[in-house]
Design a protein around this nucleic acid. Structure first.
Length: 553
RNA sequence: GUCCCUGUAGCUCAGCAGGAUAGAGCACCAGAUUCCUAAUCUGGAGGUCGGCGGUUCGAAUCCGCCCAGGGACACCA
């Protein structure tokens, strides 16, 4: 909506003040905090001071005269040092409500996916155990950011990178294998840095039950480890898929790290860099000149023992993404990898992509709190809280919402007690209650008046004269701007704030006005129309976050 | 040592491509229910935006220096 308003203002002004053309890109449409400062405020007068060599206040008064002639603007005022405050007319707002009713839970969403094609890779957990809280936060942030990019018109592919090569998988195999042999021989040694979780024992028990003969028949112990590793990996991956699906997260692409090696893609990527003169040999190892593109030091891609580094795999993986032709790609990483960004960026730059082709969203730690005490997680002992456990305890919606309350790049303290509270203190209940309340009013309307707001209806919106009604309509008008801003800045956590504020405005409205006005059917319809728009706006936001819109609580 | 992040109300944090009197939730104090769900709402108190400079009509926001806390700097994954 801001964009439309800005275009309008610029075109009207530049007819009378040609200098406006020079500053049009700097004109900012603000939504003032206080109602007396109008519905929108523009900074045009300040920007023109130098060009026109006049005081901001004088320029502002001239702008006021010009803009006041427009029917969309009910009133224009000059305030402070030269702020121009514009009050929008009721017709403007009525059109917003109609637009929402039309677009339903896709309010403000781009109609086409013509902005570009992008890839977002997230979660990408090692298939060596269940998902933990960090993965969960990454899953929510990655998924919601994907939704946001779709909202503003991108075609998005969600991708999960399976770390199925390398030491972790081997360790998994050793651990499962050891647990398997321990069933018959309790003294069988367990690898020192193996995985201790109970799930390892469960997998071993399963194998003992169904694959005992086969495993015992292996002559070579290595074969047994490989077999266990492969089996456990597949099983754990299935578990991960299930958990994510239940969490509302689905991927378009499951990309296997191992496939990079078996298909020769790693060598292909190295060959590409070699041709660009970025590869050299030193101390028996193969290095890539990442310093050419801003890294602190060059990096090894093939160790002196002939094996690839993890970095080699990552270069090949991103080379593959590059060849798939995305406009840009997003990686969601744990914050502990932030030092890794410059070197990968350098490698990617070597492909000849723009500076911001590779974008990384960092996910900071999640700490769980219960009864005011931190719930310690220890992966080594195997007694860590999994994502599934948390979802079972507080519910999917609460987990998603809480994961989205803060910028993903800051530490998050997850208060379990708060998430379980059924009161206004708990923001999840607060926003869902707003939705449920509107549904409840609709049910009541149907029962008492035989009027079903769920069906299409017309209303005389000029009857919405209360200040709070105008406040809500104004908030609704700019929700698409707020969502788009969150999308572009890669800040999905803003959605919770937007939702909370809308819920808050509604609750206030509910408490001060009656919707089911018996004595005035037209007023009732107008208000129900507004409620319907609010509910669709809430649903739009819920949908982006992946939260269930509940009909009754 | 180099680099990154953080520092805003008692607590947890928003705000930070500059804008009007710095916000929210919790906690604290005082209130509201013959009424569509009180799982709600209203009001109050609470701040040298870590410090010092700079840029400008204007700085929590941008720049520089400093202080404090956390993290990253492997032929690990």
């Amino acid at each position: 909506m801001k964009k439309e308003l800005r275009e309008k203002i610029v075109s009207v002004l530049s007819k009378e003040i040609p200098e406006v053309d020079q500053i049009k890109d700097k004109i900012k449409i603000d939504i003032p905090k206080e109602e007396k400062f109008g519905d929108i405020a523009i900074n045009a007068a300040f920007l023109l001071t130098k060009l026109l060599k006049q005081k901001p206040i004088d320029i502002a008064n001239r702008i006021k005269q010009i803009l006041e002639k427009e029917p969309e603007f009910e009133k224009v005022e000059v305030a402070g040092a030269g702020f121009i405050n514009i009050f929008l007319s009721p017709v403007f707002y009525h059109n917003i409500l109609k637009k929402i009713i039309e677009e339903k839970d896709q309010y403000g969403k781009a109609k086409n996916k013509d902005k570009g094609r992008i890839n977002i890779e997230f979660v990408s957990a090692n298939p060596t155990g269940p998902l933990h809280l960090g993965h969960g936060r990454g899953a929510v942030v990655g998924n919601v950011q994907s939704n946001l990019y779709e909202y503003i018109g991108y075609f998005v592919e969600r991708e999960f990178y399976i770390n199925d090569a390398g030491r972790q998988i081997r360790k998994l195999g050793e651990s499962v294998c050891a647990r398997f042999f321990q069933i018959e021989n309790p003294d069988y040694p367990f690898p020192e840095d193996g995985y201790h979780g109970d799930y390892i024992k469960e997998i071993a028990n399963h194998l003992y039950k169904y694959e005992r003969e086969k495993i015992l028949s292996f002559v070579d112990k290595e074969q047994a480890i490989d077999f266990c590793a492969e089996f456990a990996k597949e099983l754990l991956l299935e578990k991960i898929k299930e958990d994510l699906k239940e969490f509302g997260v689905e991927f378009d692409i499951w990309f296997s790290e191992k496939s990079l090696y078996t298909s020769g893609k790693v060598d292909e990527a190295i060959e590409f860099l070699k041709k660009k003169g970025l590869i050299y040999e030193k101390e028996g190892a193969l290095w890539v000149k990442t310093t050419e593109y801003g890294d602190d030091k060059d990096r090894v891609i093939i160790k002196s023992d002939g094996s690839y580094t993890y970095f080699a795999g990552d270069i090949a993986y991103h080379y593959d993404k590059f060849k798939r032709g995305y406009d840009f790609v997003v990686d969601v990483w744990g914050a502990d990898h932030h030092g890794y960004f410059p070197r990968l960026k350098a490698a990617v730059m070597a492909f000849g992509v723009p500076e911001d082709w590779l974008r990384v969203i960092f996910i900071q730690l999640v700490k769980l709190f219960k009864n005011g005490q931190e719930v310690k997680m220890s992966k080594r002992s195997g007694s860590f809280v999994t994502l599934r456990e948390l979802i079972e305890e507080v519910g999917k919606d609460a987990v998603i919402y809480f994961f989205l309350t803060k910028d993903s790049n800051t530490h998050l303290n997850f208060d379990i007690d708060l998430a379980l509270k059924k009161s206004s203190e708990n923001p999840v209940y607060y926003v869902q209650y707003a939705h449920a309340r509107i549904s409840s009013v609709f049910r009541e309307a149907k029962e008492r008046f035989g009027f079903d707001p769920e069906e299409d209806f017309e209303a005389d919106l000029s009857l919405l004269k209360e200040n709070q009604e105008r406040v809500i309509m104004k908030y609704l008008a700019f929700i698409p701007d707020l969502i788009s801003e969150a999308a572009e800045k890669q800040q999905p956590h803003k959605l919770t704030q937007i939702t909370y504020d809308l819920a808050s405005e509604f609750h206030y409205y509910y408490n001060h006005f009656k919707f089911l006005v018996e004595e005035d059917e037209n007023l009732m319809k107008a208000r129900l129309y507004l409620l319907k728009a609010i509910r669709y706006a809430l649903r739009t936001l819920f949908k982006l976050m992946g939260i269930t819109p509940v009909e009754r609580m």
